[in-house]
Amino acid sequence: MTGRGELGSRKAAWTLIVLAPVSAEVTFSGVTMPAMWLLLPVLVVMYGAGVLFLRELVVRHRGGWPSLLAVGLAYELVEDGIGLQALTSPNLYHAAEWGPRVLGFNTTYWQSQIGYHTVFSVLVPVLLADLLFPRHRGRPYLRRGGLVTAGVAALVGVALLRVGIAATEDPGYQAPLPVVAGVVAAVAMLIYLALKVLPSWTPAPPRFVNLPRPATVAVTAGAAAAGFLALLMPAGLPPDGPAIGTGSWVFLPMALAAALALGAGWLVYRWSAAPRWSDTYRIWLVGGALIGRTLFVVVTAPAANDYQWKPAGIAIAVGTLMIVAMAYLLTLLADRARYVCAASS
């Protein structure tokens, strides 16, 4: 692509690089953990370059949202299994206290991060970039050199997580070699699935349900996001115990969270088959998920700050401002989408 098309693709690429850490961390952990703002340069390298690289791979292989879902799972495994090694660490983030440890894996933590990072680190930023740059939807943002640069930067980001966070927060811990090898093998299989299998897979068209109003879509997305986190994540960050239940009873909220995530995904899959499904609906869907997720942090801010009301009040204020800002910006984006739709019709 040359001329204005090339300029637009560069803008889209840089926008996605910024959107990924903002969606994943700034509007979530940044509410109650001010140190997250200091780590933003590292997060931009890991999140921004990593998500851009995976998005480019999927687009170049003509993959769709199923492929993005698969690479999102791979992304989470690389971040938490190799970079932070929190999937097996008995100390980092108190993840071992979230719920049952099975074969050395922090199962509740793992489930929460699979759902969280797949949606808010990968799917949401990519969808927002598509909405902001509709002319480049489904087209590569980068040339081959840019793709290689993004991949190298993503690897550097993983190393920075290992050295800058894991080594300082959990010094001396090293995930067992079989675990690391298993994570690498799983990542390779997921990427193969995303790039070689899913692009040629043509599922039967879903029988869509009656498409509700956009506001109903937003509320459903927000409730699903907040409910999923509430079932799995302890109220405090960093946590000090399971969100619900103790011992084997924690498997019950884990099962409910899995059912909630699968049910929400199935609804979106069926809604998206409706003839009236449009960018306006996509914006309300993303907005509901983002706001519901940040609202969870605002509600749990007192517990996250050990019920010290001054820092809790600051967190609540920051989170509320973030919610207002996101709602305002998404409203502008919805107005723009309606204008583009009207202009093209």
Rank of each mutant, 00 (worst) to 15 (best):
residue 225 A to S: 14
residue 41 P to F: 09
residue 111 Q to E: 09
residue 8 G to V: 08
residue 236 G to T: 03
residue 28 F to A: 13
residue 257 A to P: 10
residue 134 P to N: 11
residue 15 T to V: 07
residue 236 G to D: 03
residue 225 A to D: 04
residue 190 L to M: 12
residue 288 G to D: 00
residue 285 L to A: 06
residue 259 A to F: 08
residue 197 V to A: 11
residue 236 G to K: 00
residue 130 D to C: 01
residue 168 T to K: 09
residue 193 L to K: 00
residue 325 A to S: 13
residue 268 V to R: 04
residue 202 T to P: 07
residue 89 S to C: 10
residue 1 M to Y: 04
residue 123 L to I: 02
residue 190 L to G: 03
residue 108 T to A: 11
residue 10 R to S: 11
residue 147 L to P: 00
residue 93 Y to A: 13
residue 33 M to L: 13
residue 307 Y to N: 15
residue 200 S to A: 14
residue 303 A to S: 12
residue 264 A to S: 14
residue 2 T to Q: 11
residue 25 E to I: 06
residue 16 L to M: 14
residue 345 S to P: 13
residue 313 G to A: 07
residue 217 V to D: 01
residue 97 E to I: 07
residue 250 V to H: 01
residue 48 G to R: 00
residue 246 T to V: 11
residue 56 E to C: 04
residue 202 T to W: 12
residue 119 V to I: 10
residue 1 M to E: 00
residue 253 P to I: 09
residue 5 G to M: 04
residue 281 Y to F: 14
residue 202 T to S: 14
residue 97 E to Y: 08
residue 253 P to N: 14
residue 219 V to M: 13
residue 281 Y to A: 05
residue 293 R to S: 15
residue 269 Y to A: 02
residue 196 K to G: 10
residue 198 L to P: 04
residue 45 V to F: 06
residue 171 P to Q: 09
residue 113 Q to P: 00
residue 329 L to F: 11
residue 73 L to F: 09
residue 300 T to S: 13
residue 18 V to F: 15
residue 81 G to D: 05
residue 79 E to K: 07
residue 184 V to G: 02
residue 247 G to R: 04
residue 159 A to T: 12
residue 242 P to A: 11
residue 307 Y to V: 12
residue 303 A to D: 12
residue 13 A to H: 10
residue 112 S to E: 05
residue 132 L to W: 06
residue 330 L to I: 11
residue 58 V to A: 04
residue 301 A to H: 01
residue 151 G to D: 05
residue 70 A to G: 05
residue 80 D to P: 00
residue 264 A to F: 09
residue 143 R to F: 01
residue 138 G to V: 09
residue 268 V to T: 11
residue 285 L to W: 03
residue 77 L to F: 07
residue 73 L to R: 00
residue 33 M to H: 03
residue 49 A to L: 05
residue 255 A to L: 15
residue 10 R to M: 09
residue 251 F to H: 02
residue 234 P to K: 02
residue 292 G to Y: 00
residue 89 S to N: 09
residue 18 V to S: 06
residue 219 V to R: 06
residue 138 G to P: 07
residue 202 T to V: 15
residue 176 P to G: 09
residue 330 L to C: 12
residue 321 L to V: 14
residue 168 T to V: 14
